[in-house]
């Protein structure tokens, strides 16, 4: 059976489009939430039990909804934002809401790894809370943050496969519609191989960057 390279190439571009755009917005959301989750917790620099008490369960709720369901649940919101609930761009909205909270937990973990002594030193120097986040927490957690984003990106590639449910396209969609539903094993194989290669490359870049920023010679 022939594998249509046009379809594959198109799917690759769709996947890259969905992953990059939703990663961009998801990372902004995730960083913001992750930082808030860290600094507002008990005993931290901007302790605030109200903010923490609201954000924390909201993140949990989004984390507990399976993506395929979130995709459907968010249709009204998607329609509001992009004007339609179908298509590649439309898939980005639920992807952001899926990956944002996920990234926030990863960011939270990374930031919590930073030694309390660093924060203490920052406070002793008279750093403002914003300076502590900018100049101490983030730089110190940076290598770990890079790995977090790497993990999130790979998770995102997996999630885009489900975007086919709302006509999002992409490699996962091709694998299902052409391969699985039409018994075109070759197409399935090719798309799966491409996905594997993608994941390998991203993980490799992540490790390389992490290693670079870890400053280990």
């Amino acid at each position: 059976m022939e594998v249509s390279y046009e379809i594959i190439l198109n799917a690759i571009l769709e996947t890259l489009y969905m992953v990059s755009i939703s990663l961009f917005f998801g990372a902004i959301l995730g960083f913001a939430l992750g930082i808030i989750l860290v600094v507002t917790r008990k005993g931290h620099i901007l302790e605030n039990k109200w903010i923490f008490g609201i954000i924390n369960p909201i993140v949990n709720i989004f984390r507990s909804i399976p993506f395929i369901i979130l995709l459907v649940l968010l249709i009204p919101l998607t329609r509001l934002i992009v004007g339609t609930a179908i298509g590649t761009t439309a898939a980005i909205v639920p992807l952001v809401f899926h990956i944002g909270p996920y990234i926030s937990r990863l960011i939270e973990n990374s930031l919590l790894e930073v030694d309390d002594g660093i924060i203490e030193a920052a406070k002793a120097m008279g750093a403002t809370p914003f300076q502590i986040i900018r100049k101490f927490l983030i730089p110190e957690a940076f290598p770990s943050l890079v790995l977090s984003v790497t993990t999130a990106t790979i998770g995102l590639i997996g999630a885009t496969a489900m975007a086919g449910a709302v006509g999002g396209g992409g490699l996962g969609d091709v694998a299902i519609t052409y391969g699985y539903q039409r018994f075109d094993e070759m197409t399935t194989l090719v798309t799966v191989i491409i996905l594997v290669v993608f994941v390998q490359i991203i993980q490799m870049i992540g490790h390389k960057l992490e290693h670079h920023f870890r400053r280990v010679s």
């Binding site: 030193a121 008279g126 920023f213």
Partner: peptide, 28 residues
């Protein structure tokens, strides 16, 4: 915060930034 700049502090476990050079740490 201003007053703290007149009070230096050093620590048992140094509490230096691993992500920065000696120069950058001291400059902080």
């Amino acid at each position: 915060r201003e007053k703290k700049k007149e009070i230096g502090m050093i620590f048992q476990h140094f509490n230096l930034l691993n992500s920065k050079t000696v120069f950058e740490n001291v400059a902080m």
